[in-house]
Amino acid sequence: MEKMLRVGAAPHIFTKDSTAVIMQDVVIALLPALAAGVYFFGYRAALLAIISIASAVAFEHLWNVAFKKPTTVYDFSAVVSGLLLALNLPPTVPVWIPVVGSFFMIIIVKMCFGGMGQNFLNPALGARAFLVVSWPSIMTSYVNSGAKLIPFLLPDAVTSATPLSGEAATRYIDLFIGNIGGCIGETSKIALLIGLAYLLIRKVITWRIPVAFVGTVAALSWVFAGDGYFNGDWLFHILSGGLFLGAFFMATDYSTTPVTKNGAFVFGIGCGVLTVIIRLIGGYPEGVSYSILLMNVASPLIEKATAPKRFGKAGFKSA
């Protein structure tokens, strides 16, 4: 009898994308931000990123070994999480901070809930929130850019406030290119925009969440952030803090955001509203990370409420 051919159910062709390719694309998109961080804060930023990524990958592998499962580190999601965590750390933190953060991020937030795609919080933001409440002084001491921090040496306390706390006068061009104090990855807006463009071109994310998030922050801060109404400095509000990093890379995380198109708008607008509320009325200068975490928890509800309209129930379509 002739050799039997292989069969299988249709479809027989697939997109060239895969989980690993998408995750690698996110890493590539984050590289400009990391490079800017290293340029402005010195090689210590690179060291923190390496420690964070290595420990994230190691924890995920150890978890798989401990539970006798095939290792999942090759999907690159741990690399993305580790890099994002590092970009969310101030460059002055001691080197054990990213290790502890990675442990919380990978083991508690991600693997305990079933691994990639099953976590209900953004792992990197969950870890950041954990670190901020546990070691608030370490996590909020920022250093001015151009500090050229040296690896393995704890820096002198040349701390500065983030522009959002309203103490430092800042030139807008510095805000845009990243010549300010802040976390490693959040300061350079131009680098983050390059990353966003790459993600959009590669169709890793859609424009909906970033545009809704940034647009809402701009609109609300224009209306409410100034003296009186409708003259707030909205450009300052969108260029400062971690808004771009959050809106482009954290709020677009697949597993913790709604899968529906309209749900993405609701999610982005919700993040924007919460961010502005925390910034303007809350007692904390930056609200991006907490607003994303709060909306992460709401995303299953948003998904349910924004399910697409059943085909054939819409009647006439508008042209």
């Binding site: 999907d75 099953q118 597993s255």
Partner: peptide, 11 residues
């Protein structure tokens, strides 16, 4: 791999 909930299938 695990489903990442990317939502591409919904789109």
């Amino acid at each position: 791999t695990n489903c990442t909930q990317c939502g591409k299938c919904v789109d």
